[in-house]
Design a protein around this nucleic acid. Sequence first.
RNA 1: AGACACCUUUUCCG
DNA 2: CGGAAAAGGTGTCT
Lengths: 308, 308
Amino acid sequence: MHKLFNRLFCLPPPCFLGYRAPETGGNMLQLIRYCFNILHRLHIYFKKQPNFDTQMFLYIPFFCSYSLTMKFYAVARGRRTGIFTSWPDAERQVKGFAGARFKSFKTKQEALAFLEDPSYTNSASSTKNIGFAPPKKKSGHRQPADYEYPENAVMVYTDGGAIGNPGPGGYGVVFETGESFSGGFNLTTNNRMELLAVIVALEALEGETRPICLHSDSRYVVNGITKNWAKAWKRRGWKKSDGTPAMNPDLWQRLLDLLPDLDIRFIWVKGHAGNPLNEACDHLANSTARMPGLPDDTGYLKSRKNSA
Amino acid sequence: MHKLFNRLFCLPPPCFLGYRAPETGGNMLQLIRYCFNILHRLHIYFKKQPNFDTQMFLYIPFFCSYSLTMKFYAVARGRRTGIFTSWPDAERQVKGFAGARFKSFKTKQEALAFLEDPSYTNSASSTKNIGFAPPKKKSGHRQPADYEYPENAVMVYTDGGAIGNPGPGGYGVVFETGESFSGGFNLTTNNRMELLAVIVALEALEGETRPICLHSDSRYVVNGITKNWAKAWKRRGWKKSDGTPAMNPDLWQRLLDLLPDLDIRFIWVKGHAGNPLNEACDHLANSTARMPGLPDDTGYLKSRKNSA
RNA sequence: AGACACCUUUUCCG
DNA sequence: CGGAAAAGGTGTCT
């Protein structure tokens, strides 16, 4: 305990880091770095040995982080080439210019490297994270059929989209048998359509006794059910873990009501990855969204009015 | 940007918070509180205005939290009776001892009460959650509020005090979410501290769009705003109605500057009347006032010199 | 910060 | 029509 404290005091206090005269953002960065440094050390210590004489609890989610997010736009081929620090400037050199080559970087060094060799690719991000280290995603591609499909299962694919988001949107549902449903609204969001696609699919399957394999490319929808996000929100009165209101409660409620009587597996599939049935849904949703004379999505309009 | 920095420097640097001699866990808590205060203020600022000259990113979800949970083990019947601060010690007195009576508490007072009367039960949870704690689900009994609290209101409690008045003083601010701020000076007055508590609370809430319910037990502060005393003094050049100078114009000016952008209700609560949040402020203010090495209240010293 | 989805613009190639 | 790249954004969650 005392040893930890002594180590903490080895850090120079903020006033020694030179931001008594705050002229530049760099000083601000040092202030933040100092605070994060202390919290980070405490966090590591508590995780390693959570119970010492004075028990202390410190909760820092892993996605706490800070970084300097200046962007450098390297234009290798354009009206004028070079490095620009704002997108409007860079866009002017590039937009409508045949054969333009450009890319953004977080450091000037990288941008210069790109200018010399336009095949240069991004290096690692310079973000500093405190808290639990993000789980390393080493495995490149997700395996195809590692999933056990039950015998006699009903295969359904769903997709939804909104042009402009928010904007006119549509949903598509395709069964392996070839049956399909679709619909759309003149103003809605992508996630509402993904959700509605699932609802329509399950409503069409009401009374089905065989197991159902429902495929969607939306993490929002799949996790909402498989990780029980939706049930947690409902229990808290449609509030998220941070206390702010969860979105689309009307649709989630409809979906939850459909679940008990069916044997469903929600399966996430990567979008635009060649799955023919997923592509079919996508096409269906898209073409519906582009149709004239679509009705209002009253649920979306209502939620929008409430938040405004 | 500069304004933010000036506000950050109003926080006493860590060396003023008394953890130069880290003998107890309480000092560690203050170190953490200091870091969280700075980060929280930066977070609010960035959220409000994410793009200034030096683009910077800081992500801290508000449910980051920390607390100090020292445990006291009261052994009423065992090999040796008394209070122990670690479970292995307490276990030795109790394990295999016929008819042992023991219980853990969070404060020494409660443990002592249990020793005298083993039927003593835990009082209301005294866990201090300071930081960005999730909103507490306090379903239960609210005091009969004759006041109409708006929906979604931010609840803030403030208190200030000076030992000896004038003398060393401190202020405390507690949000219903558990967040808290505190500070102190080596020579100041009770009203200056009450006033500063309110200022610190509102500065922390800069940019907040929800209605704010600010509770103080100082008639001076509440009436100063609700009955427009302060505005009247300012209009007359900081003179009271009888022509004599109004006190603490520096702080009143700071407070008036904060009002226009916020939707605040000033609510007077009776001090020391059992309101737990008010008590928490009181405690915070008092303990800060008793800390060694507090800085000067330059505003008070100046006004004293002028009048002398 | 990360993840998934949904888009808008520009360019290139079939 | 189909494929690719680059930049900008929103809708949602942890």
